[in-house]
Design a protein around this nucleic acid. Structure first.
Length: 425
DNA sequence: GATTTGTTTCCTGATT
DNA sequence: GAATCAGGAAACAAAT
């Protein structure tokens, strides 16, 4: 039975409560939710995935296709991922696919090192557009990376505080490279030199110091890029430091890296959720919580960053839990993946974790948590599943936005088609 | 400083 | 009777 909003008596009861400061007796806690990881948030269904031009697509665990480039750090993009990304841009901008041919042999590291003029040289017509779009994608990845670091730091502190008798463990992020001993741990990636051919004297958003203080590099890496461009180090700005390192954190590597120049695409046999990542306790070192310098985050001239930086939304948090083998199915599990329904197998644990986002407060009653979930009925992010307790359903917009995260700077938010009420007043 | 956004808190009533 | 659900209302904090 739904709330009898058509019941005038009930309505009056509600109105009589207007104006009452119900929270006057509660303690106001400074609230600045530290961002939980938004890792892997780029790998969700796209509006174009069924287009026949995408031959290298796969089905994710929800049955929505996606391309593989979103699963890789940009500097591990082979020409395959570059082509995927370019096709995406073409599709989204109504550009003929033939225009991607000029970038046919480019890899991610090469794109990273290319200046705007290089893009234009490579493709006089759309080079500038490709450059801007690539730059926007990197910008997005950078923010994701920043969120991830903040999250790790917060989780590390919390974990340490909560389990002082336990042996020191890693921050509670599931997005940790499974095999830190491979040459492609993100520590090493950060030190990976860039190919020399496309060295550019100006990459305005670069800030080598961002990672220099955080991840000591390992210049002994045996990494090679696909293609013909040998890595160099000394003559690259940043002297052996990958200035694109800010986009290379391991979280976006959803599977174990084999060391091959061409990373294997995510296998369908692997679980979708944090593929290749281990849950809490397997991270070799904790990233520094230090934030990048403002200069490293400043947008390009003419580019305005309108994104909020408030940490994950509730529905993102739920997706993160579902992607985390440590949580799924322990405290949350898919009820029917194809239908996007999930069950809170331990609702109080889930709400507690949600509450732990907030400093100085480590719990949230399930009642409040459930109310927050119901709030998202109006936003279209969640859909009620009647007569099934503790079961909720993701709205389709969740996956659109999950995927759109990578392109959020390119596309303004559009209202949910099913959401006729808009944001609640 | 006003507005927007995304909760959080509190509540009543209904359902399981 | 307890747990859960539904949803109105308002407070709150951070971002814009």
């Amino acid at each position: 039975m739904l709330f009898p909003s058509n019941n005038p008596e009930v309505g009056q009861v509600m109105k009589t409560r207007s104006g009452v400061n119900k929270r006057s007796l509660t303690c106001s806690i400074p609230f600045r939710p530290p961002p939980l990881t938004t890792a892997l948030r780029r790998g969700w269904p796209s509006s174009y995935h069924q287009d026949t031009m995408h031959s290298d697509t796969r089905q994710d665990m929800l049955g929505f296709g996606t391309t593989s480039y979103q699963y890789y750090p940009v500097n591990q993009w082979t020409s395959v991922q570059v082509q995927e990304w370019l096709r995406t841009i073409c599709y989204e901008n109504n550009i003929d696919l033939g225009n991607v041919a000029s970038f046919a042999e480019c890899t991610g590291p090469q794109l990273c090192a290319m200046s705007q003029s290089h893009f234009v040289e490579t493709h006089p017509v759309y080079g500038d557009l490709f450059f801007r779009k690539f730059r926007e994608y990197l910008d997005h990845c950078q923010r994701q990376d920043r969120h991830y670091r903040h999250h790790l730091h917060h989780q590390h502190d919390h974990h340490h505080h909560q389990h002082q008798n336990s042996p020191p463990t890693a921050p509670t992020s599931p997005y940790i490279l499974q095999n830190p001993t491979t040459p492609t741990t993100y520590h090493e990636l950060l030190a990976r030199p860039q190919p020399a051919l496309y060295q550019t004297s100006r990459v305005p958003w670069q800030d080598a110091s961002y990672h220099q203080n955080t991840y000591p590099g390992d210049s002994s890496s045996s990494y090679t890029t696909e293609g013909t461009l040998p890595p160099t180090s000394g003559d690259f700005p940043g002297a052996g430091h990958n200035t694109m390192g800010v986009y290379q954190s391991g979280y976006s590597l959803p599977f174990e890296y084999t060391g091959n120049s061409t990373p294997s695409p995510p296998s369908a046999s692997l679980p979708m959720a944090p593929q290749g990542y281990l849950p809490v306790g397997h991270m070799p070192t904790a990233p520094s919580p230090s934030s990048p310098s403002p200069s490293s985050l400043s947008p390009l001239p003419g580019q305005q960053d309108t994104r909020r930086d408030r940490g994950p939304k509730l529905w993102e948090f739920l997706l993160d839990l579902l992607e985390d083998p440590a949580c799924n199915p322990a405290i949350i599990r898919w009820e029917n993946q194809e239908e996007r329904t999930f069950r809170l197998t331990s609702p109080h644990e889930v709400s507690l974790r949600w509450g732990q986002r907030r400093p100085n407060q480590n719990s949230l009653p399930y009642d409040y948590f459930a109310r927050a979930l119901r709030y998202h009925y109006k936003t279209g992010m969640l859909i009620s599943v009647p007569e099934r307790k503790l079961v909720y359903k993701f709205g389709s917009l969740v996956f659109q936005q999950r995927r759109r995260g990578a392109n959020s700077l390119m596309y303004p938010e559009s209202p949910h088609p099913d959401n006729t009420s808009g944001h609640p007043s």
